[in-house]
């Protein structure tokens, strides 16, 4: 219930109007949204019970490792049941396959649709979505870890919350199924990071400083 309460209000996209090139405009709008989502995500992380008690080094490495996974949980959740298989990056930024392809994001589209279908088939509850998002952040394989015991405790508490929730609704297999969906999330986030790094490196799409810093940490 704490995670449900701290879930941030979805952001709206600010339409970029610096260029007449439609695809570039889409990309710039998307990257601006992503940068602002990151800011919100960092504020959100601090409110997850146990996160602020971690050392600064561990907080940084968890965020540097799990930020894209946590953000994509939101995109996949919002995109469920969309007509035309659009991806809902924001209420006012919905991209279909053709738009993504034109913007050079065909690979990202395919990966994110796959994740969205998976979540849709699992019929996730809002409680499961917020817990999955927090677990994506906690489940980093980042190395070295400053204080492994504290990170472990942070993970255990989220796991315990999920188990308690699933037991309360007599779903004995759900917690395991959700954990088993984390590899697909990691894989999707890796593809997303690659897509944005390529935009920056090969097509010279300018990125905001925070987004660039977080992408660089993954490069």
């Amino acid at each position: 219930s704490h995670l449900l309460l701290t879930e941030p209000t979805p952001l709206a996209a600010n339409q970029d109007d610096s260029t007449n090139d439609g695809s570039l405009r889409t990309l710039l709008t998307l990257c601006d949204l992503l940068n602002r989502e990151l800011l919100v995500l960092i504020g959100w992380a601090k409110q997850i019970p146990g996160f602020s008690g971690l050392s600064l080094v561990d907080q940084m490495s968890l965020l540097q490792s799990g930020w894209m996974e946590a953000l994509l949980v939101g995109v996949a959740w919002r995109s469920q049941g969309m007509p035309g298989e659009e991806l809902v990056f924001a209420g006012n930024l919905r991209l279909d396959e053709a738009q993504c392809r034109a913007a050079g994001l065909a690979d990202l589209y395919e990966a994110l649709r796959h994740l969205t279908s998976k979540y849709q088939a699992m019929n996730l509850t809002p409680e499961e979505v917020v817990t999955l998002k927090a677990m994506a952040l906690a489940n980093s394989d980042a190395d070295p870890v400053d204080c492994p015991d504290s990170v472990q405790r942070f993970q255990d508490e989220l796991h315990e919350a999920l188990q308690e929730y699933e037991l309360s609704r007599r779903e004995q297999h759900r917690a395991g199924r959700l954990l088993m969906s984390l590899p697909l999330l990691r894989q999707t986030a890796d593809r997303a990071v690659q897509a944005f790094l390529q935009l920056h490196r090969h097509r010279c799409v300018p990125l905001h400083k925070l987004l660039l810093e977080m992408l660089d940490a993954k490069a």
Binding site: L39, I42, G43, L56, Q59, M60, L63, E213, A217
Partner: peptide
């Protein structure tokens, strides 16, 4: 740490 300046600053700021 210099490389991750913004994240470092954002985490140090109080909520």
């Amino acid at each position: 740490k210099e490389k991750h300046k913004i994240l470092h600053q954002l985490l140090q700021n109080s909520t």
